[in-house]
Amino acid sequence: MEITGKIKVINETQTLGDKGFKKREVVITTEENYPQSILIEFTRDKCELLETYSVGQEVKININIRGREWINPKGEAIYFNTIQGWRIEPLIGQAPAFSSLPKPEEVDLMDDDDGDLPF
């Protein structure tokens, strides 16, 4: 899955627990009729992917949705969801799709139907 939008917040990398687990969060604001601010978490070595990005930049982030169950002290099950990013890339003037143009291998450069040269 992927999410596109503008970076609203980039948090610093956090180191958690005795084993040094690292995570870094980014908030993306989607650009739709009802914009959403989505928190995405990058973990471990993926934290470094955010180093070259800044607030206000438009990006596409590939994500996975993670869920887990926690049993509280009362014995009740509580569920948590996390949106985890694993790739990020800038949205810089995406090239238009020209799907109607033939592929290079489909063009016969030696085909001369009408016998006229263009010069």
Rank of each mutant, 00 (worst) to 15 (best):
I40N: 02
K60R: 11
P35G: 08
P73Q: 05
K22Q: 13
E76I: 04
I71H: 01
L101G: 08
F21A: 11
I92H: 01
Y53E: 09
T52L: 13
P90N: 03
E41T: 15
T13A: 02
L91W: 00
F21G: 08
F42M: 09
P118H: 07
Y79G: 03
E106T: 07
E2G: 04
V27Q: 01
G75N: 06
L16I: 13
I38S: 05
D113A: 10
A97S: 14
D111R: 08
E12M: 07
Q36C: 11
R68G: 09
T82Q: 01
V107Y: 08
I40C: 03
L39Y: 09
T43V: 15
G85K: 00
Q84R: 01
T15M: 09
N62Q: 14
T4V: 13
L109Q: 13
P104W: 03
K60S: 08
I7N: 03
I40Y: 03
Y79L: 04
G115K: 15
K6D: 10
Q57K: 15
L91M: 02
D114G: 13
F98K: 14
I71P: 00
L16F: 05
T15Y: 09
D113C: 10
E58N: 14
K103H: 10
I7H: 04
K60Y: 03
P35T: 08
E89V: 00
E12G: 08
E105L: 14
K19T: 09
P35E: 07
E48G: 10
K23H: 07
F21P: 02
T13S: 02
P35V: 10
E41L: 11
S54A: 12
K6M: 11
G93K: 03
P96V: 10
R68I: 01
F80Y: 09
F80T: 05
G93N: 05
M1G: 05
Y79S: 04
E106R: 08
W70V: 03
D112S: 15
R66D: 10
T43R: 14
K22F: 07
I61V: 12
V26W: 01
F119A: 09
K23P: 02
V26G: 01
E25S: 09
D114W: 12
E51S: 14
T82C: 01
I71S: 01
G20H: 02
T82G: 01
F119Q: 06
I38V: 13
G56S: 10
G115T: 15
N11K: 12
Q84I: 00
I78D: 15
Q84N: 04
N11G: 08
I3K: 00
W70K: 06
E25F: 05
E41K: 12
T15R: 10
P35I: 10
I38F: 06
F42H: 05
Q36L: 14
L117M: 15
T52V: 09
N64G: 08
D111L: 11
I83Q: 00
P102Q: 12
N62W: 10
G5F: 03
K46A: 12
P118I: 06
N72W: 02
T30V: 15
D108I: 08
K74L: 02
S54P: 11
